[in-house]
């Protein structure tokens, strides 16, 4: 290697090193724990509980701060045809997932349950077909659609596909609202 090139290479690698170490490194958990293994992980599905008020314990989603897992969740969302029913968050056969309305709750465990156990008005039960770990990745991605607790640098950027919506990164964090009955259930 000639001298000028060697100098250039050195300068470049220092620059690369500098930039990478400047970023906040994400911690990657290699093994996630299923929510049932978390003692006391009680997530209320309704804001009404009998007796004295109990502190609500929220199951910790293992991947809310993990950009890789969120992007995996996005891939799985297409792979398992979630996108066929929910489009890219705006909904279709299924309700929108990018808005602030949640029929069955927006907590990670609510969404985990939705995916694993299905919901009565046509959400298929994917439990058994999708492993728990992948369901958690889906949970993280679904929550990133409305920027729920998923930090901006973890949320997805611009797609390689046709542009159908702004990237999750640019989504403003929402405050989840409980939806009334799902529209489909409005029946006499």
């Amino acid at each position: 290697m000639t001298r000028p090139i060697r100098v250039l290479a050195l300068a470049l690698s220092t620059a690369v090193l500098a930039t990478t170490s400047a970023c906040k490194r994400e911690t990657r958990e290699f093994r996630g724990y299923p929510p049932s293994a978390n003692p006391g992980s009680v997530v209320q599905d309704v804001p009404l509980a009998p007796g004295p008020r109990q502190p609500e314990v929220t199951a910790r989603s293992p991947y809310e701060h993990n950009a890789y897992a969120v992007s995996e969740g996005k891939r799985l969302f297409g792979w398992y045809n979630c996108s066929g029913c929910h489009s890219h968050g705006g909904g279709g056969m299924g309700p929108p997932l990018m808005d602030d309305e949640w029929i069955y709750g927006s907590q990670p465990e609510n969404i985990f349950e939705t995916i694993a156990e299905g919901r009565p008005n046509g959400m298929p039960a994917f439990g058994g077909r999708i492993g728990n770990d992948d369901i958690w990745k889906l949970v993280a991605y679904v929550r990133s659609l409305s920027a729920l607790d998923v930090p901006q640098d973890v949320r997805g950027g611009r797609d390689d596909h046709m542009q159908y919506k702004q990237p999750e990164q640019e989504e403003n964090p929402t405050r989840p609202k409980r939806s009334t009955l799902p529209p489909a259930a409005t029946q006499p």
Partner: peptide, 21 residues
């Protein structure tokens, strides 16, 4: 009309198989 009947989110223009746009 799914945008109204099913309350879809028009920010995703691929919703309802792209009809929503």
């Amino acid at each position: 009309g799914a945008i109204v009947a099913a309350g879809l989110d028009a920010r995703d223009s691929s919703s309802a198989l792209g009809m929503i746009n």
